[in-house]
Nucleic acid binder design. Structure first.
Lengths: 150, 150
DNA sequence: ACAATATATTACGCATACGTATAATTCGGA
DNA sequence: TCCGAATTATACGTATGCGTAATATATTGT
């Protein structure tokens, strides 16, 4: 196969697209007055809004992040008063990650920014093409050994 | 529109896919004995192999990076002895970025790693679907205001 | 009960990229 | 020619993520 250089190389394109959407999202949070929320927080917040009190470990799996990445991420989110680490009563190695009131309260605004941003970013793209793209991305992840075979 | 959560959200998928390919590429360089080459170096190297002596500025455009990003990237590449900054004789603000012998010599091995990696990562994906994906990504970039309208 | 393993986190250093602010020049128009 | 605007780079601080190594606990097989 022949993979064209930067402007048309699929690897270049997914890299740029990722950064572009992330940057757009970040501006969205700032513009909507929830500037404490950073794009990277979303994976954790979405998981905790769904089920509070998960372990760092489990959060990492849901957000697709390595355990070592979780430490710093949770540090920042804790510093931003969105969550707290509480000792797990049944496992002294682990913490339960619990949302603070601020972490709970920010859900509505944050999810609005997220969905508005994605709506805009993916607008004018046929649903069928988005499905194709998702399949392609799943395959890429599989080919990189980064996705569980279902 | 409704954008499903992490495992099936297109934004989550492009982020993960980008990281996965980058990580795969990095391992490729290490396994092939060109461990000085980092994935981020490729945009710069591809441009310089094509046309040596470009300005940091121009390199940034070709690689899709901000000028402020170029400084650190070129610092690292210079430290790794892949290139040198030489003063531009016609513009005292600018440098010309020139490959060292090492920077030239590493072309064959690096491009092999790149194409082998991309071949593998994109294998088993219909060409037509890759085209669709590329179009989707171009549109995303357009929607983020990050791509020139041609 | 114990040693060997496995798990949950953290600590660190490295790699990438941005945005903002600055310094040094160059350039274009009055 | 001279001044304000544009251009070229850099310096910094911030945000993300990874991999490796270390620490503290749990679990398991014998």
């Amino acid at each position: 196969m022949n993979f064209p250089l930067p402007p048309d190389c699929p690897y270049y394109l997914i890299s740029r697209a990722t950064l572009a959407v992330t940057s757009h999202l970040k501006k969205g949070f700032i513009n909507e007055g929830v500037s404490t929320i950073k794009p990277a927080y979303l994976g954790v917040l979405l998981a905790l809004w769904d089920e509070d009190g998960l372990k760092a470990n489990e959060l990492g799996k849901r957000a697709g992040l390595e355990p070592s990445t979780m430490t710093g991420l949770l540090d920042r989110m804790e510093k931003d008063a969105l969550l707290k680490r509480e000792p797990d009563p049944h496992d002294r190695r682990a913490n339960r990650i619990v949302l603070t009131k601020a972490g709970v309260d920010v859900e509505v605004a944050s999810t609005k920014v997220l969905s508005d941003t994605l709506d805009k970013v993916f607008s004018s793209i046929p649903k069928k093409d988005i499905e194709t793209t998702k399949n392609v991305l799943h395959t890429i992840l599989l080919n990189c050994g980064k996705e569980d075979v279902k």
